[in-house]
Design a protein around this nucleic acid. Structure first.
Lengths: 162, 162
DNA sequence: TCAAGGTTGTAATGTTATAACAAGAATTGC
DNA sequence: GCAATTCTTGTTATAACATTACAACCTTGA
């Protein structure tokens, strides 16, 4: 299954406050955005740099220098990014993480393994689980809109570190 | 915030459950308590009566007449009840629900189907999903402590009601 | 040009959860 | 009985997470 590797190369500190909008995003996700707004770009950049989950308020703090002043600026961007399938919300952490999938293969039934020791998150998809959940939904007349699957525990690295 | 009317018959896999004020319950769970404290009894009673998910603050309001004054009285009781396996936390709702299983068969990998229309919750266990998740954990050296599986959608009753 | 619709900024508020500390009650040992 | 210990409880305050409401500002297109 998929592995954890949030390396979206947001290296440079591109602090140019251009009004020229040189966004050449070519993402093509579920609800594909032609291009992101400035705030969406900044929020997604923060999540990509982090390489792991961040809370909305942590993102806010990181974007103070970019002019962010209020939670809503973050929440609004996150709402869109989740909608686009570029970001996932981790319910059990009240946090958000950039999607690990290069081409965003499947956003219906992702699963997340969260290490309670180091905070790392592994995102994976499992066809059998998806099938099983859809099977239950079908059997019970439940119109499935979204699923949340989150595993809590200790990752291999943290276990080895003991 | 909203008070849902909890249709507990939304599932064909429903389990019978006593919704009475069983102040002298005889549950015997993993961390079986001989007997609950007064606050634990009151909180569990509120959840049982509701027959569906309640937030901590809703429980607090319902227990004002019983002398509850502060959130912590509720949260402390909930913490123990979850530990005992008598109550589950629904991460995607920030709410709590009394366990639907008479003898609390399996508390490791329960799944919850939450109707976004009426707020009803169906609790079920699926051996295949459990096996699959444990399989992933094993393959990836992840020491699994707890899993959260929550389905959002529309229950059969609410679909029919359209 | 204007109107419509989307995005933004800001203040205020609402909702969920925990920290810190003091006091009360049950238990044990002397 | 009387500490010492421990667990539960009550209370205040605060932290952490999220939304409402409204005004201003850009776009886009007729």
């Amino acid at each position: 299954m998929a592995e954890h590797s949030h390396d979206h190369a947001a290296s440079g500190h591109d602090h140019a406050h251009d009004h020229g909008h040189d966004h050449d995003h070519t993402h093509d996700h579920g609800s594909a955005p032609a291009k992101l707004t400035r705030n969406q770009t900044l929020v997604f950049g923060a999540l990509s740099r982090a390489g792991g989950p961040l809370t909305a308020y942590t993102i806010l703090d990181q974007l103070r220098d970019d002019g962010f002043r209020a939670p809503l600026q973050v929440y609004r961007a996150l709402e869109k990014l989740v909608e686009f399938g570029m970001v996932h919300r981790l319910e059990s952490l009240n946090a958000f993480v950039a999607c690990s999938h290069p081409q965003c293969v499947d956003h219906e039934t992702m699963a997340f393994a969260i290490c309670e020791s180091c905070g790392s998150v592994s995102e994976f998809a499992d066809a059998a689980i998806t099938r099983q959940l859809k099977g239950w939904a079908g059997d019970n007349g439940f119109a499935l809109a979204k699923t949340t699957i989150e595993l809590r525990g200790t990752c291999r690295t943290c276990q080895a570190a003991v």
